[in-house]
Design a protein around this nucleic acid. Structure first.
Length: 827
RNA sequence: GCCCGGAUGGCGGAAUUGGUAUACGCGCACGACUUAAAAUCGUGUCCCGAAAGGGUUGUGGGUUCGACUCCCACUCCGGGCACCA
């Protein structure tokens, strides 16, 4: 019998959590609707990539935070949208499918089912009516539609420039897909390869992507800084150098031969003692006949084309190069003939692919000049006037005044920049490190690019009414490795009449990169699954759809990993700005507030990975401790944006806390008193402020303190306990609901209760603890019940026995008083 | 090399933004309950010291009546970029 009662009272997380998850779904607790006059709040998680591995305990950290935040916002009277979906196109899904010999679609379906199950047992409040899946044709027809708009506005172009090629994944990659010169997915060293590809003109938006960061006041500063560095703006000048051939008998027309350099230091132009072209520079072909050592030059070009990015940029690597014999460049300032080199330290795809070299004022040029014994001429002096310029043992890159620069001598180098540029007929120019977005992949598992190549008309977009261009179902989808997409072999799919002239046409067979679908998914949620699937003619250019978009957009709170700072978050901002320019959305930035959860590492401090065998599965934790405990633990581990190692040991703390809350329900039955009320209102204040700022660890700490207070009492008041449960409910939704409905007997869910607001007048002062310091060191404290005047406090402080002892005849220089806090006696 | 973070007990961390450093939790020790254990509760727990007292927020210096907090220099750890002209 005794044992039976014990069982009855026991907190059984398994039963409770299952029960309420089912009930909440039945009651449709988390349905979102636009027909509400409440203010809207759009809370968004970065949607997951459903991989074959399933979720580990690190993944839900951000989801727990948005779940708490969105429940809190709902209780605060907001109309909350909190959706979830799947980012399922791209390399990982396809590589997984290839490895396991299943079709990617089946793999994705299976993985999604598993993910959904894993998420559901943690008790998230997603509105699954708005679930999206980027690989659903009903979804990607919209992705294709947006691509067509980009194409029609000249922001998508075909190119044959050499790009990053992953030999293992057998596809071209964007700069953003690289990790230290290696494929971000498989770790293979990336090569440069010249293949036909589609590219998006993200660089047209570089300036706005950079400037508008300043408006994102509620983004973490470090993420904005990452984007600024990635965009990498630098201001300089483009200046033409004429080429003079020394050998007139060759047949090449040598008139007007020139190349353009980009430099941020046009002020040093008089010091340019040679010039360097990148080995890929296109002018080299036309110089073949006039270069005396063409064999050597050709050899160097071939060699560097076979080198990987890593080999070319290896740290500490000595610079190499070959002089172009038989040609000279003319320094436009002083008409001096200077040698031209090719060297692979000059990058083809930055600036103009050519530089003027000023060894005296650039470290790289200095090294190169030392090696090839080229003249080093100082033209900026730190101290002016200087009788002679010192001999340099390293480049001087600082500021100064011009010397050896003709009529510009004596100018400060900042002033000289523009003047010299004008003098030589150059133009000021802004350059970015950001590259245009290589947008095609030679892989199967992606959105087909909706374009048709016609023999007569060239590239023709697929008619909008014919979207989606469905990815054909095929047996074999292995990448070819030739630079062609595996789709190219499916002739019945590829061959199609040109939409313009009806003649012979072929479909574009490259597919879009993984980042395409995620560049607008936050817009898709606002439509809901039904509208997304419905037949539409106008897509985003539809009055009703625009209305929905502008009801919810911008996203008010966006939570996801900082690793997306220079990938998804740049791409999405780019697409959004484009859609804004077309009038489809009314805000120029998609995400108002951004938070990035710190990584949860394995217990060994390393990143959780199957490879290290340190993966903790949330299902197991939920089974052992319960979802509420898991949620509390992950939020209590430390500051949200800071990483932490998983600790199986300390999860017992949050579990004990939940059990304590459970036990407290057996002690209800007293009246409220003012002291309790004061503590409650302090807690309301603290928890509310902390949730707003994503300081969940201290919010939970405040709840624990209040629970400890309640526990100290014989009996607690039902009203206070109820209020406490409401504060707890976003963190531990199941146990709060169980106690709310079953123990306290409420008919409706605790999650529909209004959030309590704190009443400052209920927070009573428990007297003032005055700290008495001598020379800033704490010597004693005393308490006053009521607020005393400054003089009274000082008097009391000086009367303390300990203080008297310390003063002991010494003279008091002054007494500093901080109201109701501190008396500091200086002797 | 450049740009961001960070460093507080045995451990995770807190500190109203210059005012009693170490809240809350883990761990540990002791005690209560128990035949016993578990669970739970209570007490203690930064270091030295018997005490008085002294020291302590990575290191060194500075500003201040007073510094985890502000300034200067440095060390270490994490992240990003990296021959970007």
């Amino acid at each position: 019998m005794w044992f039976y009662i014990y069982k009855m009272n026991e907190y059984d997380h398994k039963e409770i959590e299952k029960k309420w998850q089912k009930k909440w779904a039945e009651e449709e607790l988390y349905k979102t609707s636009e027909s509400s006059d409440k203010p809207k709040e759009y809370v968004l998680d970065m949607f997951p990539y459903p991989s074959g591995e399933g979720l580990h305990v690190g993944h839900p950290k951000g989801y727990i935070a948005t779940d708490i935040y969105s429940r809190y916002k709902t209780m605060r009277g907001f109309n909350v949208l909190h959706p979830m979906g799947w980012d399922a196109f791209g390399l990982p899904a396809e590589n997984y499918a290839l490895k396991n010999k299943v079709h990617p679609r089946q793999a994705v379906e299976k993985n999604i089912a598993r993910y959904k199950e894993q998420l559901s047992i943690i008790g998230f409040n997603y509105d699954w009516d708005r679930e999206i899946n980027t690989t659903d044709p009903a979804y990607y027809k919209w992705t294709q539609w947006i691509f067509l708009q980009l194409f029609k506005h000249g922001l998508a172009y075909e190119s044959n420039e050499p790009i990053n090629w992953c030999p293992s994944c057998k596809t071209g990659l964007a700069n953003e897909d690289l990790d230290n010169g290696a494929c971000e997915r498989c770790g293979s060293t990336v090569e440069k390869k010249r293949i036909r590809q589609w590219v998006l003109r993200i660089t047209d938006y570089a300036e706005r992507l950079l400037n508008d960061l300043d408006e994102l006041k509620e983004w973490p500063e470090h993420i904005k800084e990452l984007q600024r560095n990635w965009i990498g703006k630098s201001e300089g000048a483009e200046i033409d150098f004429k080429i003079k051939t020394q050998n007139a008998k060759r047949k090449t027309t040598t008139q007007n031969l020139k190349f353009t350099v980009f430099t941020t230091r046009p002020d040093t132009l008089f010091g340019a003692t040679y010039a360097v072209l990148s080995p890929e520079h296109t002018i080299l072909e036309s110089l073949e006949d006039v270069i005396d050592n063409w064999g050597d030059v050709k050899h160097y070009i071939d060699e560097s084309s076979h080198k990987t990015e890593i080999e070319r940029t290896a740290e500490g690597k000595e610079k190499t190069g070959v002089e172009l014999k038989g040609v000279k460049a003319i320094n436009p300032t002083n008409k001096e003939e200077i040698p031209i080199f090719i060297a692979d330290y000059v990058l083809a795809d930055y600036g103009t692919g050519a530089i003027m070299a000023v060894p005296a004022h650039d470290e790289r040029d200095f090294q190169f000049a030392k090696k090839y014994e080229l003249p080093i001429r100082m033209v900026i002096c730190p101290h002016y006037p200087a009788p002679t310029c010192p001999i340099l043992d390293e480049a001087y890159t600082g500021a100064g005044h011009l010397v050896v620069s003709g009529k510009f001598d004596g100018l400060s180098n900042e002033e000289a920049k523009q003047k010299i540029t004008e003098f030589v007929g150059g133009k000021m120019k802004t350059t970015y490190k950001l590259r245009d977005w290589v947008f095609s992949r030679q892989r199967y598992w992606g959105e087909p690019i909706p374009l048709i190549h016609c023999e007569k008309c060239g590239v023709v977009p697929v008619s909008e009414k014919d979207l989606p261009v469905v990815l054909p179902e095929v047996e074999s989808y292995e990448p070819t490795g030739t630079g062609e997409s595996p789709l190219a072999n499916i002739s019945e799919w590829v061959n199609i009449a040109c939409p313009k002239c009806g003649g012979k046409g072929k479909r574009e067979t490259n597919t879009m990169p993984q980042w395409a679908g995620s560049s607008w998914y936050y817009l898709a949620y606002t439509l809901g699954t039904k509208k997304l699937k419905r037949k539409t003619q106008n897509y985003l250019d539809d009055k009703n759809i625009k209305k929905l978009l502008n009801f919810w957009i911008p996203v008010d709170m966006y939570v996801g990993g900082a690793e997306h700072a220079t990938r998804h978050l740049i791409y999405a901002r780019f697409w959004h700005k484009f859609l804004y320019d077309q009038g489809f959305v009314s805000h120029s930035e998609p995400f108002r507030r951004l938070k990035s959860p710190g990584l949860i590492a394995g217990a060994d401090g390393r990143k959780m990975s199957k490879r290290f065998g340190n993966v903790i599965n949330p299902d197991d934790v939920v089974a052992t401790y319960g979802a509420d405990t898991l949620r509390l633990h992950e939020m209590f581990m430390g500051p949200f944006e800071q990483g932490a190692a998983w600790s199986e040991e300390s999860i017992i703390g949050p579990r004990r806390f939940v059990e304590k809350v459970w036990r407290l329900s057996k002690h209800i039955g007293s009246e409220t008193d003012a002291r309790d009320e004061s503590k409650l209102h302090q807690t309301i204040k603290k928890v509310t402020e902390d949730i707003e700022q994503f300081k969940f660890n201290t919010a939970i700490s405040a709840l624990m303190i209040l629970a400890n207070e309640m526990e100290r009492k014989e009996k607690i008041s039902a009203i206070h306990y109820s209020q406490f449960l409401i504060l707890l409910s976003p963190f531990a939704p199941h146990v709060a609901e169980e106690l709310w409905r079953e123990t306290l007997g409420h008919k409706t869910s605790i999650h529909l209760e209004p959030w309590p607001s704190h009443d400052e007048s209920k927070i009573i002062s428990e007297g003032f603890v005055i700290t008495v310091q001598m020379n800033g060191k704490v010597r004693d404290t005393f308490t006053t019940e009521t607020e005393l005047s400054e003089d009274e406090i000082k008097e009391k402080a000086l009367a303390l026995e300990k203080i008297k002892k310390w003063i002991d005849g010494q003279s008091i220089k002054k007494i500093i008083y901080v109201k109701n806090k501190i008396v500091n006696i200086v002797i």
